[in-house]
Simulated scan of single mutants.
Amino acid sequence: MDQLLNDFSPGLFFMQAFIFLILLLLLAKFAWKPIIQSLKIREESIQDALDSAEKAKEEMAQLKADNEKLLDEARQQRDAILQDAREVANGIREEAKNDATKQTDKMIADAKTAIEVEKQAAMAEVRTLVAELSLQVAEKLLKRKLDDEGAQKELISDFIKDVKLN
């Protein structure tokens, strides 16, 4: 260190100081401003990226909420469709049941009508037979021209014996 002090030259020192100050001014004017400006631009781009990331995060949260809402609506629509399908199926089942009941009632009514028609036909046949028998009795009575009452009664009882009712 002593040697540095012995070799010290004030002119050299001022010259170096002057060159250093000029270099400092040149650096301040031409280098530091662009460096500081690029640092500011870099800081702004980082801040913009952070803001964009935050905005994207909020949008994702909103999309997630919208998706949940859509899912809930889809579930509600599905439940409504299923309920409607059940109601339609129950209606069809009830309608088929009612149709079967109507057809059964119609078949019973048709059977009753057929029975009544057969009954009426049988009654008409019985009436016809009774009328024929009456005519035969009357015919036989008229053929004999019976005068007394005893002979008529005897003839009627003979005739009743001859006739067999089924």
Rank of each mutant, 00 (worst) to 15 (best):
E59W: 09
I22S: 02
L24N: 02
K164F: 05
Q16E: 15
A61G: 04
V117M: 02
A131Y: 05
I156A: 01
K112V: 05
I46S: 08
K57S: 15
Q83F: 12
Q120V: 03
I46K: 05
K164L: 11
R75G: 13
D147E: 12
I160D: 02
L24H: 05
I35S: 01
L142E: 00
I108R: 05
R127L: 04
L23K: 10
L4W: 15
L27I: 13
D148A: 00
K153S: 10
I92E: 11
F159R: 00
A74P: 05
I108Q: 10
E73V: 09
E44C: 00
Q83H: 13
D105T: 15
I41P: 00
E149C: 03
Q152L: 12
K161A: 15
K164W: 07
K33D: 02
T101C: 13
I22Y: 00
E87L: 09
E87S: 04
L70N: 09
A100R: 01
K40M: 05
V130P: 06
D99G: 07
L155Q: 02
G11A: 15
A17V: 02
S38D: 14
R42L: 13
V163D: 08
D84S: 10
T113S: 08
N98A: 15
D7S: 10
L63C: 08
L39D: 14
K164V: 07
K112Q: 02
A74Q: 04
I156Y: 10
T113R: 13
L70V: 08
Q103G: 01
R78H: 09
M60P: 05
A131H: 06
Q76S: 12
L50M: 13
A80M: 12
E154I: 07
D99N: 04
N90W: 01
V130D: 04
A28Q: 03
L82I: 11
A28Y: 02
E59H: 00
A96I: 05
A96E: 14
K112P: 01
L165P: 01
L82C: 07
L71V: 09
V130R: 04
A109H: 11
F18P: 01
A49L: 14
Q62K: 11
Q16I: 10
N6R: 08
E149V: 03
A85V: 11
A49Q: 12
L142R: 06
A114F: 08
M15Q: 10
K64D: 09
E94R: 12
L70A: 06
K57E: 15
E87A: 09
K145S: 03
D99I: 03
D84K: 07
R78A: 13
D79L: 05
A151T: 07
F13Y: 09
D72C: 03
A124N: 10
D2Q: 11
Q47D: 08
A31N: 01
N6Q: 15
